[in-house]
């Protein structure tokens, strides 16, 4: 087999240093979407870069560097989930959120309290407020919902990739997203987002 000459260690070091500089924050955000805990996310970035460093010679430039790094990161997360499977399945099951929906809808599936309409954002004045409330409410979502939401909405990941990382089917992903959005909407309304007209009741 004709393997190209392995790049020197120095080259790999230089590459890893550059990845850290260029992609460190993006990788960290991606990791944070998946594990939530900042220390764990930092460890994931570290593991990813170490693995990439070790595999530097195998990077062939078929994908962009960042895509390649993200793939490594996701594999690490999948491993992590596999190792903590018992936990993952017991309280992170995507369907384990019926009780929230039951609070939202009655037994016939109708709103108990119809949501008020949010006013459309004027300019960018309250954008900071919006993010503060969004982050606050994201913090209250069940783990897999927040992972699905962050990856799809904030990281712009495509749904196939998210299904793979979270090990769910497409229909389960839509379930997760529905619950996430319903919870966010309730939470953000309660925290005063865009209800200048005031909710009735």
């Amino acid at each position: 087999m004709s393997t190209p000459e392995a790049p020197s260690k120095t080259e790999a070091r230089a590459a890893a240093t550059r990845w850290l500089e260029q992609y460190g924050d993006r990788l960290y955000r991606h990791a944070l979407a998946l594990v939530r805990d900042s220390a764990q996310a930092e460890d994931l970035v570290q593991d990813t870069l170490l693995a990439a460093f070790a595999a530097h010679a195998s990077f062939r430039g078929e994908a962009s560097e960042y895509t390649w790094l993200v793939r490594i990161l996701r594999n690490r997360v999948t491993d992590l989930h596999r190792r903590t499977r018992e936990v993952a399945l017991s309280h992170l099951h995507p369907d384990a959120d019926e009780e929230f929906l039951d609070r939202l809808f009655d037994e016939r599936g109708h709103w108990r309290d119809a949501p008020p309409v949010w006013s459309s954002p004027e300019a960018g004045a309250d954008q900071r407020d919006f993010w503060r409330i969004l982050e606050l409410c994201l913090g209250l979502l069940p783990e897999r919902q927040v992972a699905a939401f962050r990856l799809l909405e904030l990281e712009g990941a495509d749904s196939d990739a998210v299904c793979k990382v979270l090990e769910v089917s497409a229909s389960n992903l839509w379930v997760l997203m529905h619950r996430a959005r319903a919870r966010l909407m309730r939470c953000m309304t309660e925290n005063g987002l865009g209800t200048t007209e005031g909710a009735d009741g």
Binding site: Y28, R29, E42, V45, Q127, F130, W131, R181, M185
Partner: peptide, 27 residues
């Protein structure tokens, strides 16, 4: 309608970089 507002504001925020608060950066 609220879903749309949520989506639009997130898109705007991501584009404007509002989302990259220090909490979202590698320490």
């Amino acid at each position: 309608r609220n879903l749309r507002v949520l989506r639009d504001r997130i898109v705007t925020g991501v584009r404007a970089g509002t989302v990259s608060s220090s909490a979202q950066m590698l320490s």
